[in-house]
Every structure is written in structure tokens, then in C-alpha cells.
Computed example of a mutant assay.
Amino acid sequence: MTEQEQILFACVDNCCYFKLRGALRYTNATGMDDLVERLFSHHTGCHRVVVDLNEASFMDSTYIGLLAGLARYCQLQQLPRPTLFSTNAEVNELLFSLRLEQAFDIVQQPTHQVFAMAAIGTQQYTEQQQGEMILRAHEALIALNDSNKSQFQPVVDLLKQQLK
């Protein structure tokens, strides 16, 4: 599986559908970050969001923070809570430990998508842009709940110091 195949996207009947595969790390998160920024900065026809993690084998805190940011965008745009599908027990444990059920409707079963999806490749971010993406992701995790704040505030403080 190449990096381009890790993020698949389609917008069908005003539903934005993300399919994320493999090991999802900050090193391959630029495509997802760029896609989410473009989608919600241009008032697209996206009225509902679905995220399929059934083929995700691992997620780091940056990627989970990107998901938290996606949920925040939905809330700000007054869209319904996004739906997240995941059958991987390890991924689910991480999602629930970071309280993503507060921002997503998590469905622990497979999806049966039957439409074509476009592969989204990684974007060329500068070191500064990548640092800002990681900072935004961790700030989104902190905004989700207080237990995340105690866990990720030192990371945020360090990133802010390094990005000056």
C-alpha cells in the first residue's frame, strides 16, 4: 500500500466520505490535513461526514487530533456529528481513551461503501507547516476534554516554543 492509497475520499449526495488505511502517522498526515482545510474553508456541499477506519492499523496522536479537528469543523458548520466506523480493537481503544466518542458517533462494524473514491496524496509541507499541523491537531485533542489536556499540554507548549 502506498501513501497515496492511505487516504481515499469521495463526496456522494452531500456526504463527505473519508477512508483511512494502514499506519496513520504525522509523517503521512499532510494529505488529510490539506484536504480537511480545503473542504471546510470553501463551504463545499458537504452536509455530512463519515470516516471509515476499518482498514487503519495504527493512529498516532497527530492523526487522532486531525479527526478531532474534523469533528470541530462539523460542529462549527452546524453539521450533524460525524460518523466514524472502526472494527480494529486497538484503534478503538485509543479512540475511546482520547474521548473521541464525545465528538463522533462511533460505529464498531464494517462499512459497505459501493462508490468510487479518489486517492489523496501527501502534500509537500515545510518543516514550519508540518509543525503547525501537529500543533493544531494536539490543540484539537486538548479542546475535546480535560483528561486530554493533562496528557497533551506539554506537547503543545513545546511545539509553540519551537515554532516561534
Results as ranks from 00 to 15, higher is better:
M1E: 02
T2S: 14
E3D: 15
Q6G: 06
I7S: 02
L8F: 07
A10S: 07
C11N: 14
N14F: 13
N14M: 15
Y17G: 01
F18C: 00
K19S: 11
L20C: 02
L20S: 00
G22K: 00
A23P: 06
N28I: 03
G31I: 00
L35H: 05
L35E: 03
V36P: 07
E37V: 06
F40V: 00
F40I: 01
R48D: 12
V51Y: 02
V51N: 00
D52K: 01
D52L: 02
N54G: 00
E55W: 06
M59F: 09
S61V: 12
S61I: 07
S61K: 03
S61F: 03
T62V: 15
L66K: 05
A71H: 03
A71N: 03
C74S: 11
L76P: 01
L79R: 04
A89N: 06
A89T: 08
A89M: 11
N92Y: 10
E93W: 14
E93R: 15
L95D: 02
S97P: 06
L98M: 10
Q102V: 12
Q102P: 03
D105L: 05
V107A: 02
Q109H: 12
Q109R: 15
H112S: 13
F115C: 14
A116E: 14
M117F: 14
G121C: 09
G121T: 09
T122C: 12
Q123I: 10
Q124L: 13
Y125D: 04
Q129E: 15
Q129L: 14
Q130M: 15
G131N: 08
A137E: 06
H138C: 08
D146W: 13
S150K: 03
F152V: 02
V155Y: 12
V156L: 04
V156F: 07
V156K: 02
L158T: 11
